[in-house]
Amino acid sequence: MNSILKNTFLKNTWKLVSLLTAMIVGTVLFAGSALAAGGTGPEVKRQEWSFGGFNGQYDKAQLQRGFGVYKEVCASCHGLKLLSYRNLVQKGGPEFSKEQALAIAKEATVIDGVDEDGEPKERPGKLSDRFQGPFKNETEARSANNGAYPPDFSVLAKARTIHRHVPWYTEPYWWAYDMVTAYEEKGSDYIYALLTGYGTAPKGEVMGDGMNYNKYFPGHQIAMANPLTDDAVEYTDGTATTAEQHAKDVTAFMAWASEPHLNARKNLGKRVQIYLLIFALLLFLAKKSVWARLKH
């Protein structure tokens, strides 16, 4: 290949590449804006959570209220099988007193061992027992709930998520934003939205038998009827007993159930990060001073 040709090619490489990039970006941009409009239901709003972000910690009083809502309203259908009654006492949780937790445990009937005839023996719950679910098994749960299976609450707040309705090309920005702000409450935001998202079905929506309209539920038809109403649960700490407040409190409780060591983790994290910062600074100075030797 002669040199003139080579030079022309060289000059044009950048042009060629930018043209190619522009073409690809252009088509994808167009495609993205068309697709971003899709999606089910309105965008879920982010809530302020006491446990959100870098400094977030659970609010003990809120977890206690939330447990109250769980116990009065949700527990008749939703289990909490990965938790034990003792967890209600542990630090960083609702921190009930041992007596309160024991009283809660004793309300449950636990099958433990067999009697002389080999029949299962029942006894009241102890702190070391797992939370006793409302149903013996999934089949019983489904038959009692119009065929739907009420999910267990143990990790539910981490098993749900939300999607931002943003143009596709801004998504990387939001990824970075969520990372830097340590946004881990997508599941909580979804659950709160769901609990407050009941309403009447818009005209034209054909509702299934026994189904309820919820604007945040995928497909909008949910088997669970609106569980929370104003004053559904009594609060002893003077907090307003609105349906929204109930939803907020029980969501916080579910967040704790799914991530019980969050308080300790975030506290330790600060100490580790400060340690690493100082360590990095020391090493940087040491590196500079060692490498300074080379210049002599």
Partner: peptide, 15 residues
């Protein structure tokens, strides 16, 4: 340099 090396070393050991 020595100070920095010793300090960094101790930090590493503690960590």
């Amino acid at each position: 340099r020595d100070f920095l090396m010793v300090a960094a070393g101790s930090f590493a050991a503690v960590g």
